[in-house]
Design a protein around this nucleic acid. Structure first.
Lengths: 187, 187
DNA sequence: GCCCAAAAGCTAACGACATTAGCCAGTGAC
DNA sequence: GTCACTGGCTAATGTCGTTAGCTTTTGGGC
Protein backbone atom coordinates (compact mmCIF):
# COMPACT_ATOMS: atom_id res chain seq x y z
CA UNK A 1 0.00 0.00 0.00
CA UNK A 2 2.64 2.50 0.94
CA UNK A 3 6.16 2.79 -0.35
CA UNK A 4 9.13 3.02 2.01
CA UNK A 5 7.16 3.95 5.10
CA UNK A 6 10.13 5.47 6.92
CA UNK A 7 8.21 8.22 8.58
CA UNK A 8 4.65 8.32 9.89
CA UNK A 9 2.48 11.07 11.28
CA UNK A 10 2.88 9.54 14.72
CA UNK A 11 6.67 9.71 14.53
CA UNK A 12 6.49 13.33 13.41
CA UNK A 13 4.35 14.11 16.44
CA UNK A 14 6.81 12.21 18.65
CA UNK A 15 9.69 14.35 17.46
CA UNK A 16 7.60 17.50 17.82
CA UNK A 17 6.76 16.63 21.42
CA UNK A 18 10.43 16.11 22.22
CA UNK A 19 11.20 19.52 20.80
CA UNK A 20 8.43 21.14 22.79
CA UNK A 21 9.62 19.47 25.98
CA UNK A 22 13.16 20.66 25.42
CA UNK A 23 12.70 24.11 23.97
CA UNK A 24 9.13 25.17 24.59
CA UNK A 25 6.47 26.21 22.13
CA UNK A 26 8.79 28.51 20.18
CA UNK A 27 11.20 25.64 19.58
CA UNK A 28 8.58 23.84 17.55
CA UNK A 29 9.58 24.52 13.98
CA UNK A 30 9.19 22.34 10.94
CA UNK A 31 12.91 22.65 10.24
CA UNK A 32 13.74 21.34 13.69
CA UNK A 33 11.25 18.48 13.38
CA UNK A 34 12.71 17.62 10.00
CA UNK A 35 16.25 17.63 11.37
CA UNK A 36 15.25 15.40 14.25
CA UNK A 37 13.46 12.92 12.02
CA UNK A 38 16.32 12.91 9.52
CA UNK A 39 14.33 14.27 6.62
CA UNK A 40 14.14 17.45 4.54
CA UNK A 41 11.62 20.02 5.72
CA UNK A 42 9.19 19.78 2.81
CA UNK A 43 8.99 16.02 3.23
CA UNK A 44 7.04 16.55 6.44
CA UNK A 45 4.12 17.78 4.34
CA UNK A 46 3.60 14.18 3.24
CA UNK A 47 2.55 13.40 6.80
CA UNK A 48 1.16 16.65 8.11
CA UNK A 49 -0.83 19.28 6.24
CA UNK A 50 0.75 22.30 7.92
CA UNK A 51 2.36 23.51 11.10
CA UNK A 52 -1.09 24.32 12.40
CA UNK A 53 -2.31 20.80 11.84
CA UNK A 54 0.79 19.44 13.54
CA UNK A 55 -0.06 21.57 16.55
CA UNK A 56 -3.56 20.13 16.54
CA UNK A 57 -2.13 16.59 16.52
CA UNK A 58 0.14 17.53 19.40
CA UNK A 59 -2.89 18.80 21.29
CA UNK A 60 -4.59 15.44 20.84
CA UNK A 61 -1.56 13.62 22.20
CA UNK A 62 -1.30 15.80 25.27
CA UNK A 63 -5.00 15.52 25.95
CA UNK A 64 -4.84 11.73 25.70
CA UNK A 65 -1.83 11.59 27.96
CA UNK A 66 -3.58 13.74 30.55
CA UNK A 67 -6.74 11.66 30.33
CA UNK A 68 -4.73 8.49 30.94
CA UNK A 69 -2.97 9.92 33.97
CA UNK A 70 -6.14 11.27 35.48
CA UNK A 71 -8.02 8.05 34.90
CA UNK A 72 -5.28 6.19 36.73
CA UNK A 73 -5.33 8.68 39.59
CA UNK A 74 -9.08 8.42 40.08
CA UNK A 75 -9.45 4.66 39.69
CA UNK A 76 -10.31 2.94 42.95
CA UNK A 77 -11.20 6.19 44.68
CA UNK A 78 -14.53 7.78 45.42
CA UNK A 79 -16.04 11.09 46.49
CA UNK A 80 -13.78 13.75 47.93
CA UNK A 81 -10.86 11.36 47.74
CA UNK A 82 -11.30 10.97 43.99
CA UNK A 83 -11.78 14.68 43.35
CA UNK A 84 -8.71 15.52 45.39
CA UNK A 85 -6.68 12.89 43.53
CA UNK A 86 -7.85 14.30 40.19
CA UNK A 87 -6.87 17.84 41.11
CA UNK A 88 -3.48 16.77 42.40
CA UNK A 89 -2.85 14.63 39.34
CA UNK A 90 -3.66 17.64 37.17
CA UNK A 91 -1.14 19.81 38.94
CA UNK A 92 1.58 17.20 38.93
CA UNK A 93 1.14 16.55 35.20
CA UNK A 94 1.61 20.22 34.47
CA UNK A 95 4.64 20.42 36.71
CA UNK A 96 6.23 17.46 34.95
CA UNK A 97 5.42 18.64 31.45
CA UNK A 98 4.88 22.39 31.52
CA UNK A 99 5.61 22.89 27.84
CA UNK A 100 3.32 20.08 26.80
CA UNK A 101 0.52 21.49 28.89
CA UNK A 102 0.96 24.86 27.27
CA UNK A 103 0.49 23.07 23.94
CA UNK A 104 -2.82 21.54 25.03
CA UNK A 105 -5.87 23.07 23.38
CA UNK A 106 -8.23 25.00 25.58
CA UNK A 107 -11.17 24.34 23.30
CA UNK A 108 -10.78 20.77 22.01
CA UNK A 109 -14.53 20.55 21.46
CA UNK A 110 -14.27 23.09 18.65
CA UNK A 111 -11.67 21.20 16.63
CA UNK A 112 -12.51 18.15 14.56
CA UNK A 113 -9.15 16.51 15.16
CA UNK A 114 -9.39 17.01 18.90
CA UNK A 115 -13.09 16.46 19.51
CA UNK A 116 -12.80 12.79 20.52
CA UNK A 117 -9.90 13.32 22.88
CA UNK A 118 -11.60 16.34 24.41
CA UNK A 119 -14.83 14.48 24.95
CA UNK A 120 -13.07 11.58 26.64
CA UNK A 121 -11.23 13.99 28.87
CA UNK A 122 -14.45 15.63 29.96
CA UNK A 123 -16.04 12.28 30.63
CA UNK A 124 -13.37 11.41 33.16
CA UNK A 125 -14.09 14.60 35.06
CA UNK A 126 -17.82 14.06 34.89
CA UNK A 127 -17.43 10.47 36.08
CA UNK A 128 -15.38 11.63 39.04
CA UNK A 129 -18.17 13.97 40.04
CA UNK A 130 -20.99 11.52 39.29
CA UNK A 131 -21.21 10.27 42.85
CA UNK A 132 -22.28 13.67 44.06
CA UNK A 133 -25.56 13.15 42.30
CA UNK A 134 -25.50 16.45 40.44
CA UNK A 135 -28.26 16.78 37.89
CA UNK A 136 -28.17 18.44 34.51
CA UNK A 137 -26.64 21.86 34.54
CA UNK A 138 -25.41 21.47 38.12
CA UNK A 139 -22.98 18.84 36.86
CA UNK A 140 -21.82 21.17 34.10
CA UNK A 141 -21.27 24.04 36.51
CA UNK A 142 -19.34 21.81 38.90
CA UNK A 143 -17.16 20.56 36.06
CA UNK A 144 -16.47 24.10 34.96
CA UNK A 145 -15.55 25.21 38.46
CA UNK A 146 -13.14 22.32 38.80
CA UNK A 147 -11.55 23.17 35.52
CA UNK A 148 -11.21 26.82 36.44
CA UNK A 149 -9.32 25.90 39.59
CA UNK A 150 -7.12 23.23 38.03
CA UNK A 151 -6.25 25.20 34.91
CA UNK A 152 -6.04 28.55 36.64
CA UNK A 153 -3.58 27.35 39.22
CA UNK A 154 -1.53 25.20 36.86
CA UNK A 155 -1.18 27.84 34.21
CA UNK A 156 -0.11 30.53 36.66
CA UNK A 157 2.26 28.20 38.48
CA UNK A 158 3.90 26.87 35.35
CA UNK A 159 4.58 30.34 34.04
CA UNK A 160 6.15 31.42 37.30
CA UNK A 161 3.29 33.81 37.91
CA UNK A 162 3.11 33.24 41.64
CA UNK A 163 6.43 34.90 42.31
CA UNK A 164 8.26 32.91 44.94
CA UNK A 165 7.15 29.26 44.98
CA UNK A 166 6.92 29.42 48.76
CA UNK A 167 3.78 27.86 50.16
CA UNK A 168 2.35 26.86 46.80
CA UNK A 169 1.39 23.44 48.11
CA UNK A 170 -0.64 25.13 50.82
CA UNK A 171 -2.34 27.42 48.34
CA UNK A 172 -3.35 24.44 46.23
CA UNK A 173 -4.60 22.49 49.23
CA UNK A 174 -6.76 25.47 50.15
CA UNK A 175 -8.18 25.57 46.65
CA UNK A 176 -8.97 21.85 46.75
CA UNK A 177 -10.64 22.18 50.12
CA UNK A 178 -12.56 25.23 48.93
CA UNK A 179 -13.86 23.31 45.95
CA UNK A 180 -14.83 20.25 48.00
CA UNK A 181 -16.64 22.36 50.58
CA UNK A 182 -18.47 24.11 47.79
CA UNK A 183 -19.41 20.82 46.14
CA UNK A 184 -20.93 19.66 49.40
CA UNK A 185 -22.94 22.84 49.72
CA UNK A 186 -24.22 22.61 46.16
CA UNK A 187 -25.35 18.99 46.32
CA UNK B 1 17.29 67.17 22.45
CA UNK B 2 15.80 64.91 19.83
CA UNK B 3 15.58 65.45 16.13
CA UNK B 4 12.34 65.12 14.27
CA UNK B 5 10.42 63.27 16.97
CA UNK B 6 7.72 62.00 14.66
CA UNK B 7 7.37 58.67 16.37
CA UNK B 8 7.69 57.73 20.03
CA UNK B 9 7.76 54.45 21.88
CA UNK B 10 4.28 55.19 23.18
CA UNK B 11 2.91 55.64 19.67
CA UNK B 12 4.50 52.39 18.58
CA UNK B 13 2.80 50.62 21.48
CA UNK B 14 -0.49 52.30 20.55
CA UNK B 15 -0.31 50.93 17.03
CA UNK B 16 0.70 47.51 18.32
CA UNK B 17 -2.29 47.40 20.65
CA UNK B 18 -4.63 48.26 17.79
CA UNK B 19 -3.18 45.42 15.79
CA UNK B 20 -3.56 43.00 18.67
CA UNK B 21 -7.15 44.06 19.20
CA UNK B 22 -7.97 43.56 15.54
CA UNK B 23 -5.97 40.50 14.61
CA UNK B 24 -4.85 38.81 17.80
CA UNK B 25 -1.38 38.00 18.99
CA UNK B 26 -0.29 36.56 15.65
CA UNK B 27 -1.20 39.80 13.93
CA UNK B 28 1.46 41.63 15.89
CA UNK B 29 4.33 41.94 13.46
CA UNK B 30 6.89 44.68 13.14
CA UNK B 31 5.99 45.10 9.48
CA UNK B 32 2.36 45.69 10.37
CA UNK B 33 3.26 48.14 13.12
CA UNK B 34 5.56 49.96 10.72
CA UNK B 35 2.84 50.15 8.09
CA UNK B 36 0.35 51.50 10.59
CA UNK B 37 2.74 54.12 11.91
CA UNK B 38 3.79 55.12 8.40
CA UNK B 39 7.41 54.21 8.75
CA UNK B 40 9.82 51.59 7.38
CA UNK B 41 10.20 48.48 9.50
CA UNK B 42 13.82 49.01 10.62
CA UNK B 43 12.94 52.51 11.82
CA UNK B 44 10.99 50.96 14.67
CA UNK B 45 14.26 49.84 16.20
CA UNK B 46 14.93 53.46 17.07
CA UNK B 47 12.06 53.25 19.55
CA UNK B 48 11.96 49.62 20.56
CA UNK B 49 14.87 47.22 21.04
CA UNK B 50 13.15 44.17 19.57
CA UNK B 51 9.82 42.52 19.08
CA UNK B 52 10.22 40.92 22.48
CA UNK B 53 10.70 44.27 24.16
CA UNK B 54 7.69 45.63 22.33
CA UNK B 55 5.67 42.76 23.76
CA UNK B 56 6.93 43.65 27.22
CA UNK B 57 5.83 47.26 26.74
CA UNK B 58 2.43 46.03 25.60
CA UNK B 59 2.21 43.93 28.75
CA UNK B 60 2.82 47.02 30.86
CA UNK B 61 0.07 48.90 29.09
CA UNK B 62 -2.45 46.13 29.53
CA UNK B 63 -1.56 45.72 33.18
CA UNK B 64 -1.96 49.44 33.79
CA UNK B 65 -5.28 49.48 32.01
CA UNK B 66 -6.53 46.58 34.09
CA UNK B 67 -5.31 48.15 37.30
CA UNK B 68 -7.18 51.36 36.46
CA UNK B 69 -10.41 49.56 35.74
CA UNK B 70 -10.22 47.44 38.84
CA UNK B 71 -9.39 50.38 41.02
CA UNK B 72 -12.46 52.15 39.72
CA UNK B 73 -14.62 49.11 40.29
CA UNK B 74 -13.52 48.68 43.88
CA UNK B 75 -13.59 52.34 44.92
CA UNK B 76 -16.39 53.10 47.33
CA UNK B 77 -17.07 49.45 48.06
CA UNK B 78 -16.07 47.27 50.95
CA UNK B 79 -15.89 43.61 51.96
CA UNK B 80 -17.77 41.05 49.88
CA UNK B 81 -19.19 43.82 47.74
CA UNK B 82 -15.70 44.99 46.78
CA UNK B 83 -14.37 41.50 46.12
CA UNK B 84 -17.36 40.68 43.97
CA UNK B 85 -16.94 43.93 42.05
CA UNK B 86 -13.27 43.17 41.48
CA UNK B 87 -13.98 39.71 40.14
CA UNK B 88 -16.71 40.94 37.87
CA UNK B 89 -14.57 43.80 36.61
CA UNK B 90 -11.84 41.28 35.82
CA UNK B 91 -14.17 39.15 33.75
CA UNK B 92 -15.68 42.07 31.90
CA UNK B 93 -12.29 43.49 31.01
CA UNK B 94 -11.26 40.20 29.47
CA UNK B 95 -14.53 39.94 27.57
CA UNK B 96 -14.06 43.42 26.16
CA UNK B 97 -10.41 42.98 25.25
CA UNK B 98 -9.69 39.27 24.91
CA UNK B 99 -6.63 39.75 22.72
CA UNK B 100 -5.15 42.35 25.01
CA UNK B 101 -5.64 40.12 28.01
CA UNK B 102 -3.85 37.29 26.22
CA UNK B 103 -0.95 39.71 25.77
CA UNK B 104 -0.75 40.45 29.49
CA UNK B 105 2.23 38.90 31.23
CA UNK B 106 1.53 36.17 33.75
CA UNK B 107 4.73 36.91 35.66
CA UNK B 108 5.18 40.70 35.62
CA UNK B 109 7.22 40.50 38.82
CA UNK B 110 9.99 38.73 36.92
CA UNK B 111 10.44 41.40 34.27
CA UNK B 112 12.19 44.68 34.91
CA UNK B 113 9.98 46.61 32.52
CA UNK B 114 6.81 45.23 34.07
CA UNK B 115 7.75 45.08 37.73
CA UNK B 116 6.21 48.41 38.70
CA UNK B 117 2.93 47.81 36.88
CA UNK B 118 2.72 44.28 38.29
CA UNK B 119 3.32 45.48 41.82
CA UNK B 120 0.66 48.13 41.56
CA UNK B 121 -1.77 45.58 40.21
CA UNK B 122 -1.14 43.28 43.14
CA UNK B 123 -1.56 46.10 45.59
CA UNK B 124 -5.08 46.75 44.38
CA UNK B 125 -6.01 43.14 45.01
CA UNK B 126 -4.36 43.14 48.42
CA UNK B 127 -6.11 46.38 49.34
CA UNK B 128 -9.45 44.89 48.38
CA UNK B 129 -8.82 42.00 50.74
CA UNK B 130 -7.33 44.12 53.51
CA UNK B 131 -10.61 44.47 55.36
CA UNK B 132 -10.73 40.75 56.01
CA UNK B 133 -7.83 41.16 58.38
CA UNK B 134 -5.73 38.43 56.87
CA UNK B 135 -2.23 38.28 58.30
CA UNK B 136 1.03 37.51 56.52
CA UNK B 137 0.85 34.41 54.37
CA UNK B 138 -2.94 34.16 54.74
CA UNK B 139 -3.22 37.32 52.69
CA UNK B 140 -0.91 35.89 50.06
CA UNK B 141 -2.87 32.66 49.83
CA UNK B 142 -6.15 34.56 49.55
CA UNK B 143 -4.71 36.73 46.77
CA UNK B 144 -3.51 33.67 44.93
CA UNK B 145 -6.85 31.94 45.20
CA UNK B 146 -8.60 35.01 43.83
CA UNK B 147 -6.21 35.17 40.94
CA UNK B 148 -6.63 31.49 40.16
CA UNK B 149 -10.38 31.95 39.89
CA UNK B 150 -10.30 35.18 37.94
CA UNK B 151 -7.59 34.13 35.51
CA UNK B 152 -8.74 30.53 35.22
CA UNK B 153 -12.28 31.48 34.28
CA UNK B 154 -11.33 34.38 32.06
CA UNK B 155 -8.72 32.51 30.10
CA UNK B 156 -10.97 29.51 29.49
CA UNK B 157 -13.93 31.70 28.60
CA UNK B 158 -12.03 33.93 26.23
CA UNK B 159 -10.61 31.00 24.31
CA UNK B 160 -14.04 29.45 23.93
CA UNK B 161 -13.02 26.58 26.17
CA UNK B 162 -16.37 26.24 27.88
CA UNK B 163 -18.12 25.00 24.76
CA UNK B 164 -21.54 26.58 24.63
CA UNK B 165 -21.66 29.91 26.46
CA UNK B 166 -24.91 28.86 28.09
CA UNK B 167 -25.07 29.56 31.80
CA UNK B 168 -21.62 31.08 32.01
CA UNK B 169 -22.90 33.93 34.16
CA UNK B 170 -24.21 31.38 36.63
CA UNK B 171 -20.93 29.50 36.68
CA UNK B 172 -19.08 32.70 37.45
CA UNK B 173 -21.51 33.71 40.17
CA UNK B 174 -20.99 30.31 41.77
CA UNK B 175 -17.24 30.81 41.68
CA UNK B 176 -17.53 34.24 43.26
CA UNK B 177 -19.79 32.90 46.00
CA UNK B 178 -17.46 29.94 46.54
CA UNK B 179 -14.54 32.31 46.99
CA UNK B 180 -16.41 34.62 49.35
CA UNK B 181 -17.65 31.75 51.49
CA UNK B 182 -14.12 30.42 51.65
CA UNK B 183 -12.74 33.83 52.61
CA UNK B 184 -15.19 33.98 55.49
CA UNK B 185 -14.13 30.53 56.66
CA UNK B 186 -10.44 31.39 56.54
CA UNK B 187 -10.63 34.65 58.44
C1' DG C 1 23.50 83.21 12.42
C1' DC C 2 26.56 79.23 11.75
C1' DC C 3 28.39 74.39 13.03
C1' DC C 4 28.19 69.96 14.78
C1' DA C 5 26.72 66.06 17.14
C1' DA C 6 22.96 63.30 17.94
C1' DA C 7 18.62 61.51 16.72
C1' DA C 8 15.53 59.43 13.50
C1' DG C 9 14.59 58.15 9.33
C1' DC C 10 15.89 55.24 5.06
C1' DT C 11 17.65 51.26 1.80
C1' DA C 12 20.06 46.98 1.33
C1' DA C 13 21.07 42.62 2.95
C1' DC C 14 21.00 38.22 5.76
C1' DG C 15 19.24 34.23 7.86
C1' DA C 16 15.30 31.60 9.56
C1' DC C 17 10.99 30.03 8.54
C1' DA C 18 6.48 28.02 6.23
C1' DT C 19 4.83 26.65 2.13
C1' DT C 20 4.38 25.23 -2.94
C1' DA C 21 5.81 23.10 -7.27
C1' DG C 22 7.76 19.71 -9.61
C1' DC C 23 10.95 15.79 -9.97
C1' DC C 24 12.78 11.00 -8.87
C1' DA C 25 13.08 6.42 -6.93
C1' DG C 26 11.53 2.53 -4.61
C1' DT C 27 7.55 -0.65 -3.81
C1' DG C 28 3.55 -3.37 -3.86
C1' DA C 29 -0.37 -5.22 -6.70
C1' DC C 30 -1.48 -7.43 -10.63
C1' DG D 1 7.73 -7.58 -15.11
C1' DT D 2 5.14 -3.48 -15.33
C1' DC D 3 2.91 0.48 -13.52
C1' DA D 4 0.66 3.55 -10.49
C1' DC D 5 1.41 5.36 -6.12
C1' DT D 6 3.91 6.90 -2.25
C1' DG D 7 7.36 9.27 0.11
C1' DG D 8 11.30 11.30 -0.36
C1' DC D 9 14.18 15.27 -2.61
C1' DT D 10 15.70 20.11 -4.57
C1' DA D 11 14.52 24.64 -5.96
C1' DA D 12 12.01 28.65 -5.31
C1' DT D 13 8.90 32.20 -3.13
C1' DG D 14 7.27 35.32 0.28
C1' DT D 15 7.25 36.86 5.04
C1' DC D 16 9.64 37.94 9.16
C1' DG D 17 13.08 39.84 12.53
C1' DT D 18 17.27 41.93 12.72
C1' DT D 19 21.77 44.37 11.52
C1' DA D 20 24.74 47.58 9.03
C1' DG D 21 25.51 51.69 7.17
C1' DC D 22 23.98 55.95 4.96
C1' DT D 23 21.33 60.50 4.89
C1' DT D 24 18.87 64.14 6.75
C1' DT D 25 16.98 66.98 10.09
C1' DT D 26 17.30 69.55 14.29
C1' DG D 27 18.54 71.79 18.48
C1' DG D 28 22.31 73.71 21.37
C1' DG D 29 26.77 76.15 21.88
C1' DC D 30 29.66 79.57 19.99
Amino acid sequence: MSARPRLTTAKVVDAALELIDEQGADGLTLSAVAARTGVATPSLYKHVASLGELRAHIGVRVLEEMTDRFTGAVLGRAGDDAVSALLHAYRSYVREHPNRYAAAPMDPLHNDLQLAAGTKFMEVVLATLRQYGLEGSDAIHATRRLRVIAHGFASIESSGGFGLPEGLDDTYDQLVRMYLTDLRGQS
